[in-house]
Amino acid sequence: MSGAKLEVWQIAKRFQGIVAVDSISFTAEAGGVTGLIGPNGSGKTTTMNMITGLYTIDAGRIALDGETLSGCSPHEVAARGVARTFQNIRLLPDQSVLANVMLGTHLGHRKNILAVLARLPGVVREERAAERRCRALLDELNIAHLANVPAGDLSYGDRRRVEIARALATQPLLLLLDEPAAGMNHAEKRQLGDLILQIRSSGVTVLLIEHDIDLVSKVSDHIVCLNFGREIAEGTPAEVRASPAVIEAYLGRDDDA
């Protein structure tokens, strides 16, 4: 499996006159981890919602491997190989972990409702293969023992893992992670970092939105920093951390200097 390259050109989004994203451009290279950082309200999640088609874009263009993605509805974006997790975890709480992850295999099924109703052998085989794949995923993410537990009963960190497993079950070319470390403790964050690197090594392109600058620096090949709906710095983790614009955005201007 190899990842896809995401290109974003000068996209903009306004909500009733309020500019959420003014003009953002960046590229997430295929097979790499790109970090998207910035203070609250800088337009990170809006950008992600535009990429996944939940928001229409008011200007600009988004392309996946050179083909236009903007203008597609969310399920079409998903069908093109883009999967995501949500900032506020969105699992189906009364369904089992396995059932949640199985939802991610939706695109992989041949859509033939008559074959489903007749329980043709092909359908049963497909269903079993999907379940095997999901169980293997749960195993990779160290949550195999939770397969039959309702997702709502899980700890926070485990719920994040289930969400990532569900996204991976779609066999994505591009994985968007929206603040996956929010609310995690140190140990959980470290595990998450390892997990992201593991996903990267399987070839999937990752776009990581995150506040935790240490985590982003550790896993990203490239970081884009946003503020007020524009990108203010871009480069390797070291470059971005040293950038005066980034320091100013996070810590404020030093008036005494």
């Binding site: 399920h75 998903a78 995501r84 189906l92 369904q95 695109l107 099924h109 779609t170």
Partner: peptide, 30 residues
């Protein structure tokens, strides 16, 4: 019909739509 559909990708998609259609869409459900 209901029993069989519920065990299929179709049933999972419907259950997702019922609880959270943003999630359903993001997983490729029309």
């Amino acid at each position: 019909v209901v029993f069989t559909l519920r065990r299929s990708y179709f049933g999972r998609a419907i259950a997702a739509i019922k609880q959270d259609d943003v999630v359903a869409q993001s997983m490729g459900v029309n």
